[in-house]
Simulated scan of single mutants.
Amino acid sequence: MLAIVRRYEAAGFRAWPAAAVHYDGTWVVRLTAGHPAKRLNSVNPLDPGDTQHVAERIGRASRRFDAYGRPLTFRMSPLSGQVLSKHLDEAGWSRFDESLVMRLPLKEAQLDTAMDQIPLKDISRFIGAAIKTNDSDVSLRPGLSEVIGAIQPEAGLFALEDGNEALATLVCVHDGDLAGLFEVATEKSARNKGHGRNLILSALKWARLRSAREAWLQVEAGNVAALSLYRSLGFEEVYRYHYRRPPGA
């Protein structure tokens, strides 16, 4: 199981790259000045057995986060292990925002009727659409541009539009035999009309044509509508992760 988790974790780091990455043993410290997303600003432990000098290392990580003006945040997957979890419990750290990692073998995806769609080449146009569908603050535009521009594997920028109005957006990162879906969003007034489903199917069809064999994504456990959609498409849970912060953070 841990080998599977490591595979998705590594793919996630490549697909949604932080601006600065530091290693402390097998802890991956990711920081991004231009975007506040937790997965871009978190400590990611990758070995349950790496438990040496935990308090000292947390202190080092805290100083790095302070320098970026970010709250110290640990992203806890099954790779974090029980020893570290117990240490954080005893220190009174809060636990929040659980998410699921889900997968779908593309040979099982119903893509025959999916519309053929060419990803956008204009990053600026896509960013504008994504900010609208995600209802994000326009101040995040430079940071999001930086993240998307830094993606090393092939990234398909998908947008469903009605004239100049963005209805749904997503990023599909084709990385070997994996196709990761990121930033999947539908504009509030356009929800429950099948736009998200249609765009996901188009992106998966695009990825399968590029020889991807498995789709995967991350979704917050509390996002009932998204979970229902993904499960209806055939996605199944692989593992979960959550975030932790120290008292007062």
Rank of each mutant, 00 (worst) to 15 (best):
P142T: 04
P142L: 06
G143F: 09
L144F: 14
L144N: 04
S145Y: 06
E146L: 02
E146A: 15
V147W: 04
V147L: 10
V147I: 12
V147Q: 01
I148T: 03
G149L: 07
G149Y: 13
A150S: 14
A150W: 07
A150L: 03
I151L: 07
I151E: 02
Q152R: 14
Q152T: 15
Q152M: 12
A155W: 02
A155P: 05
L157S: 02
F158W: 12
F158H: 09
L160V: 00
L160M: 13
E161C: 13
E161H: 01
D162V: 03
D162S: 10
D162T: 07
G163S: 07
G163H: 10
G163P: 04
N164Y: 02
N164S: 15
E165Y: 06
L167K: 11
L167P: 02
L167M: 11
L167D: 04
A168K: 03
T169A: 01
T169E: 01
L170C: 13
L170D: 05
V171L: 13
C172S: 11
V173K: 03
V173T: 14
V173W: 05
D177C: 06
D177V: 11
D177I: 12
D177G: 05
L178W: 07
L178R: 09
L178K: 04
L178H: 08
A179P: 08
G180T: 10
G180N: 08
G180I: 03
G180L: 07
G180H: 12
L181P: 00
F182N: 12
F182Y: 15
F182P: 03
E183A: 10
E183L: 14
E183C: 11
V184N: 10
V184L: 09
V184Y: 02
V184D: 13
A185C: 07
A185F: 02
A185H: 08
T186V: 13
T186G: 08
E187N: 10
K188Q: 15
S189H: 12
S189T: 15
S189I: 12
S189K: 11
S189Y: 01
A190H: 15
A190F: 13
A190N: 00
R191G: 03
N192Y: 10
N192H: 15
N192F: 12
K193Y: 04
K193C: 09
K193G: 15
G194R: 01
G194L: 08
G194M: 10
H195V: 02
H195E: 02
H195P: 05
G196V: 01
G196W: 10
R197S: 12
R197N: 11
I200D: 06
I200C: 08
I200V: 12
S202C: 07
S202P: 05
S202H: 01
A203M: 04
A203R: 07
L204Y: 08
K205S: 08
W206H: 06
W206D: 11
A207K: 05
A207I: 08
A207W: 07
R208Q: 15
L209K: 14
R210D: 03
S211H: 15
S211W: 02
S211N: 14
A212Y: 01
A212K: 09
A212I: 04
A212D: 06
R213T: 15
R213K: 15
E214F: 09
E214A: 05
